[in-house]
């Protein structure tokens, strides 16, 4: 398929290749604007951005629900526009909304999904049971979905998304509105799919800690543009090191120039009795700073070391925190419905 890329990394190859993907609504509003990225086989790739940044639009284009206005996307070796059905057969989708039919049982919902893929019942029946076991819904298999809790529904969606043996699974906001325990469970399944089933996962989220703890690589997206792609560590390192705050008993003497001379220290700010220091490796820098202060005959009253969080990286890159963005009425409503049902 892509012989020119095989030589560098023989094991991993791109399962998703996106080039200049754009979606324009009404000829003006660009929901996604010239996005390009690649996803390697076997990795968990995350799209991080506020609501309305273009995450779901991108996922919908990659899963053939929306057709791109321009640009190209090749998923599992098939062009999303020209070979939509081949893409559909090869990917699994766990959408943001709860799509299961409430009047049917969990089992019937999965079997219906299988029917839509054309999977014969002789295969889909045992496979559906396996998947329900996997997401720990075997006891609720024959209960109507309207009796399910939000977490159970989310797990059912996951099972439905796996019925066609996908190589690549798309998850749109997999933990939106879920409580802490259920979120942890969903994270557990995501890791299991990667580690034990060697599945490639593409997930969107606006929870920073989710992207940080799950993803191998993250693309930060805002206003339809990808601002930065990298591993969580790379993104965090990008903001320029750890922050050390040191309190000194006597604020009269200014030690900033001396501290600034230390090799690992990048930046020092004195604020009354406190020094706010940016350093490359906080663990190594802080003892050096303490030694220096003591050598000047001063007492250290307190010290704290903060590793940069993705939150700060995000703030640094986009100039704002992740907050609720104004989106179109329909998207907002749909998300509210999802969240309301998640809590039920």
């Amino acid at each position: 398929m892509m012989p020119n890329q095989r030589d560098t990394k023989p094991v991993s190859k791109a399962i998703v290749e996106v080039e200049g993907l754009t979606k324009t609504y009404d000829g003006k509003f660009k929901a996604v604007d010239g996005v390009s990225f690649q996803i390697e086989e076997g990795e968990i790739f995350g799209f991080l951005g506020p609501n309305g940044a273009g995450k779901s639009t991108t996922i919908n284009m990659l899963t053939t629900l929306l057709s791109p206005s321009s640009g190209q996307a090749v998923v599992c070796g098939f062009d999303v526009h020209k070979h939509a059905n081949d893409v559909r057969r090869n990917v699994g989708i766990v959408p943001q909304e709860y799509t299961a039919d409430e009047d049917m049982t969990g089992m019937a919902n999965i079997l219906l999904c299988a029917d839509l893929y054309g999977i014969p019942r002789s295969d889909s029946k045992p496979h559906a049971m396996e998947l329900l076991n996997l997401v720990e819904l075997q006891d609720a298999a024959n209960r109507k979905v309207k009796t399910y809790s939000g977490g159970m529904r989310r797990r059912l969606e996951l099972a439905c998304g796996l019925i066609n043996y996908p190589k690549l699974l798309f998850m749109d906001e997999p933990t939106l509105g879920l409580d802490v325990q259920t979120r942890a469970a969903v994270w557990k399944y995501i890791r299991m799919l990667k580690q034990e089933y060697h599945m490639t996962l593409f997930l969107t989220t606006h929870y920073l800690e989710e992207a940080d703890s799950l993803c191998d690589r993250i693309a930060i997206i805002d206003h339809g543009h990808i601002i930065k792609i990298g591993t969580p560590t790379e993104l965090k390192d990008g903001i320029g090191g750890d922050v050390i705050v040191v309190g000194v008993a006597d604020g009269e003497v200014d030690l900033s120039p001396d501290i600034g001379k230390l090799e690992l220290v990048k930046e020092v700010k004195k604020n009354g009795n406190e020094y706010r220091i940016k350093a490359e490796s906080g663990e190594e820098a802080s003892p050096q700073i303490m030694d220096l202060i003591r050598s000047k005959g001063l007492h250290v009253t307190k010290i704290s070391l903060t590793k940069p969080s993705l939150d700060e990286a995000y703030l640094e890159l986009t100039g704002r925190t992740l907050r609720e963005e104004e989106t179109n009425r329909w998207a907002t409503m749909s998300q509210r419905i999802t969240m309301a049902r998640a809590r039920s």
Partner: peptide
């Protein structure tokens, strides 16, 4: 409204 249509559309049906 309840997302089932999108689910169906994401399959090759």
């Amino acid at each position: 409204r309840f997302g089932f249509l999108n689910k169906a559309l994401s399959t090759p049906v």
